[in-house]
Every structure is written in C-alpha cells, then in structure tokens.
C-alpha cells in the first residue's frame, strides 16, 4: 500500500517539475532579451552590414517569439548554442569546462557541512543549556550572520597573506587550493544545519519512545545513534534542497574571490557582457540542479519519514 502511494507521489512530483522548468527558461529568456543593449554593442558601433550579418547568424533579427520557440526547441536537445563572447566556444563546452571545479568545491562543502553541522548540533543538543551549548549556538549564529564574502577576504588576509600557510587564490586540483574556498562556502551551511539539528534533536530527546529506550536500560550511545538520530535528521534532509541553492549562489562570490575558473565566474562575466546564451545556459543548468535536488530531497524525506503515508493517494 505504502509502495504504490509513494510511487504515485513520485509521479505527481515528477510531473510538477515540467511547469517549473518551463517557467525557469521562459523568465530567463525574456528577462535578458528586454535588456537595453545587446551582445554586439561595442564602444565603436559595428558597420551596418557586419551587424546585420551577426544578427542573422545568431537569429537575433527574427521576431522575439520565434527566437523563443527556436531556443526552446534547441534546449530540448540539450544544446545551449554558441557563446556570443567567447568565440569558437559553445555554451555546452564552457559549462563542461567550468563545472568540474564548481562541483568539486560545492560537493565537498556540502559533505563537510552535513557531517560537521549534524555533529555540532547533536553535541549542543545533548549539552542543552550549558556553556557548551551556548557557545556553539553563538558561533552558529555568527556563521549564519557573517556573509561569506566577508569571511573569505578575512581568511585570505590571516591565513594566506599574514601567515602564508595557504595560497591566497588561484586554482589547482590540490588540497591546499581547495581548503579555503570549501571552508568559506561550508561555514554558513554548517551553522544552519547545526541549529536545525539541535532543535529537532532536543524535541526528539523529549519524546516518549526515547524515554522508553532509556528505561529499557539501553546505553546512551545506542539511544542517540539508533533511535534519536534518524528522526532528528529529517529537518536537515529537507534543508538540503535550499542548501544546494545557497551553495551555488555562494559559489558565485567564492569563485570570484579565490579566482577559481568555475561556472559562477562565467555567470558574472556573461551577465556583464550580455552574453545571452552563456547566461541563460548557466541559469538553466543551475536551475535544473536546484530543482532536481529539491525533488530528490522531497522523495528522500517522504521515504524516510514514517509519518507520511500515501494510503489516500
């Protein structure tokens, strides 16, 4: 019964992805097209004929609606078209060249945030209303409040410029180069997850079945690890969707500060250069990741949470 219910839930959620995706692409498309100024507006205006040829080549001379449907048709085949600014590059190639670095940093940060955040949160919950709890929560509040574009320069200043332990920026596939960006990116997420975990853990620890488990004489380790942990993690699981969005947004800034050639830096550059196809490519690419992540998290949550039954469905 539960299985078919879950399947039904899965199907209906999967269907609802379609309007979301459609809206994402549509907004991105029209928003950037109503912009005054185009990709070929240079300081010195191009000669008429060249301009007309360029416009024709990229179909910019067609009516907007026609361009829109052309773009939609193209997207279905997963082709984001050529970049306007980086000549000889397609947007797909640019995404493929920028994404690995972004993924490495974002993925590691996510993992770090999950492990550290839950660990710290559980410790604070066990020591509720003690000095340990207060100092952890105070620090977590700091982690949430202080933006990562403030943390990043300060870390560089202290650890790289003054102490000289780590490189101040640049990109190599090495631990030393990834450490600072990953930490900066993970900090606010660690803080948020710690707060969530603490809150739900405290609630769970007050529930009857935990009292039963303790009354049975189970060791505290088992009570926490086996009985309390799973329900306490549910809010954290559902936060993983927004966390992904936050990490991606944060990476735009982080990549700029540490001069990492990732997707985020392409996005900012593309936006400033009005490189329509590149900007839309990145927005859609990241949008799809966020939407998919929300979907996965939603499914995971439904699957893990015994309170959600789909019998009616």
């Amino acid at each position: 019964m539960k299985q078919t219910g879950l399947g039904h839930h899965f199907a209906s959620r999967l269907l609802s992805l379609v309007p979301t995706l459609l809206m994402l692409i549509t907004i991105a498309f029209f928003l950037i097209r109503v912009a005054p100024g185009g990709p070929f507006d240079t300081e010195k205006p191009l000669p008429q004929e060249i301009r007309a040829n360029l416009d024709a080549k990229y179909h910019l001379d067609e009516p907007l609606l026609q361009q829109y449907f052309r773009y939609m048709g193209q997207i279905v085949t997963l082709d984001f078209g050529p970049s306007y600014q980086y000549k000889d590059w397609t947007v797909n190639e640019l995404i493929a060249s920028g994404f690995p670095a972004s993924l490495a940093i974002g993925g590691t940060a996510m993992l770090l945030a999950f492990v550290m955040g839950t660990l710290i949160g559980v410790i604070a919950a066990i020591r509720q209303n003690t000095a340990v709890d207060y100092s952890i929560m105070g620090m977590a509040m700091m982690g949430i409040s202080i933006p990562n574009f403030v943390v990043a320069p300060l870390l560089i200043l202290v650890l790289a410029v003054y102490a000289g332990w780590l490189p101040a920026g640049g990109w190599e596939w090495s631990f030393r180069h990834m450490l600072l960006p990953v930490i900066t990116l993970a900090l606010p997420v660690i803080a948020y997850i710690a707060r969530l975990t603490r809150g739900s853990m405290i609630e769970v620890l007050h529930s009857n079945y935990i009292r039963t488990a303790r009354a049975k004489g189970l060791p505290e380790r088992i009570v926490l690890g086996r009985h309390a942990m799973k329900p306490a993690l549910l809010p954290v699981i559902s936060y993983m969707g927004p966390a992904t969005a936050g990490l991606i947004t944060g990476s735009v800034v982080i990549e700029r500060i540490y001069s990492i050639p990732g997707l985020g830096s392409y996005f900012v550059q593309g936006a400033l250069n009005r490189d329509y196809t590149l900007v839309m490519g990145v927005v859609i690419f990241y949008g799809v990741i966020i939407i998919l992540m929300n979907f996965i998290v939603d499914m995971l949550y439904a699957w893990l949470n015994p309170k959600i039954r789909f019998d009616e469905g």
Binding site: T20, L24, I27, L31, T249, F267, L272, V282, G287
Partner: peptide, 20 residues
C-alpha cells in the same frame, strides 16, 4: 508560489540588475 520558489531567484536578481 511553489513554482517560483523552486527557481534560482538570486540569479534572477542578478539578471534584473544587469538588465535594468
């Protein structure tokens, strides 16, 4: 609201700033 919620709105703000 659900649909808009799922969109990467930070990117839209950036786009808005660039565009207008």
């Amino acid at each position: 609201v659900d649909i808009i919620y799922a969109l990467p709105f930070m990117f839209f703000v950036i786009l808005l700033m660039v565009v207008f």
